[in-house]
Design a binder for these strands. Sequence first.
DNA 1: CGCAGATTGAC
RNA 2: AUUGUCAAUCUGCG
Length: 575
Amino acid sequence: MAALGVNGPEDDSPNWDNVAWRRHEENVRRLRGRIFKATKDGDWPQVRNLQKLMLRSWSNTLVSVRQVAQHNAGRATAGIDGQVALTSPARMDLAEQTHRTAQSFMPLAVKRVYIPKANGKQRPLGIPVISDRVHQARHRNALEPEWEARFEPKSYGFRPGRSCQDAIQVIHVTACGATAQRLWVLDADLTAAFDKIDHDRLLATIGNFPGRTKIRGWLKAGVFEKGKGFTPTDAGTPQGGVISPLLLNIALHGLEEAAGVRKERSDPQRTKRGSPSLIRYADDMVALCYSKQQAEDVKTRLAAWLAPRGLTFNEDKTRIVHLDDGFDFLGFTARRRNGKLLMKPSKAAVKRVRHRLSAEFRALRGTNPATVLAKINPIVRGWANYYRGAASSIVFAALDVHLWRLTYKWACHSHPHKPRPWIVNRYFGRYNPDRQDRWVFGDRNSGAYLPKFAWTKIVRHRLVRGNASPDDPAQAGYWAERRSKNQPLLDRRTLHLLRRQHGTCPICGELLLHADREPQSPREWEQWHRTARKAITRQIIAVYGNGLSDDARLVHSFCLRRTTGGQQEPAPLNS
DNA sequence: CGCAGATTGAC
RNA sequence: AUUGUCAAUCUGCG
Ligand SMILES: Nc1ncnc2c1ncn2[C@H]1C[C@H](O)[C@@H](COP(=O)(O)OP(=O)(O)OP(=O)(O)O)O1
Ligand SMILES: [Mg+2]
């Protein structure tokens, strides 16, 4: 208690299940913020001191163990030592052990496993032992905020608070207008990026970070492969290491300047006219240039800059093209059509999801509709969600046609002797009350149905501010506002209606939600509109009248049915 | 508001 | 067993 859990395990209850996670996360978050700020201020002695503090922090250890041994998908996969920590006592042991050995531990070799890549080749993973993953996570919390304060604003891969959609949107806004000047594109990727990073160069870049000898230890730890034994490593960082993504970003820091990108002196956020613009996502990058010649110059400059860092372009994935011919980036295709730049799902991505869906339906033959929905709905929702910020309507419609075929074939296969109208009647209908669509595949037992890609609302993605970092204490307000604006799209209007009606149903006069009274405090309102959202999705309450106009009312859906005799459909309340 | 599980996508 | 980082989303429970 006294030292806010920063100094040692003795401060805390030894029970993993009683750990005050909120407090420890807050400790780590605050310390990250201080490292970020000290870096921005250029106060290097302070940066190093705070990093040492982070490397001694018990909160950091706890948070890191939870991430690695509890939250991550690979928690049950051991490294070469065969160790995992899947129970609460084992996790507490792991925390105490990693904390005790924070200075003395020796990194172990990673386990080599090969997984298939999208292009059919193999990806060599390097899986560290669980305790090394914890140590790496601890070091990342010390190292990352320093570099977050320095990274280029247009680098998006592996960085907290930044997404593929941000990178795509930046390309869109810099090349969308009819008057856009940068029409030649260098689209480049590096060969085996993680595996080839030069150790000495990287360690020099990291400088006198207090955990540098440990970082060095992980880089040099070597590989153990079943049947082949131990191999030392002389380059690269393991694909599977917790800090590896951060290390790649550090190794590639400065790439933008090397490409010849120049910023306005008055506003360092803006790139100079005449200068190319470079957007990077991990080892994948796009340079928007004024001419083909400029794109070629950028490429030669970059190749020279990359070489001493151990990195080379992957010529198979590197090209120089005109925007009118289009290029693929992060699963999107960018292409200019009569003066406008369109970002749509790439051909390869569409093909992949098509094959995925076909394969799933093949595997689902002979099951019931509920099983189909349980398997397919998350795929549709997840995929549509990723592309909802782009010009995806046409692709979505095409995928719905594909899905219709698959469901129809699936239904026919289930009932080979029934007539077609029977099959259609049995499995297809107007299952979604908000849509006038009779061709929705659904389960007549539960009323559950298969959503269509095309129902996904196309929403413009909100771009992150160029230099924004969640580690920056000065920008805490920006991130809070961003979260609140992004989250409750549906709740804004609903909350307004709820408050106006004092939480009651105008038809029966009862409270709309299962609560004994109208909420009084702001905190109670907060909880209210959370339950309201659930109630709406479950159609316990509905909107009476035009859902968009001001005279709309929230009512119990059974009240609505009773008064209108089922005449009026529940108005679409979105979803 | 707190805890937990799951899926999708990029690399 | 297939690891890691990041983002988005959904669903449960108290
Ligand atoms: N599934 C993954 N697990 C861990 N790290 C990954 C994974 N996918 C990609 N990465 C990391 C490691 C890669 O070196 C880096 C760049 O990805 P990518 O360009 O697809 O492969 P690559 O650069 O290693 O080989 P290639 O020569 O085919 O480009 O991102
Ligand atoms: Mg690559």
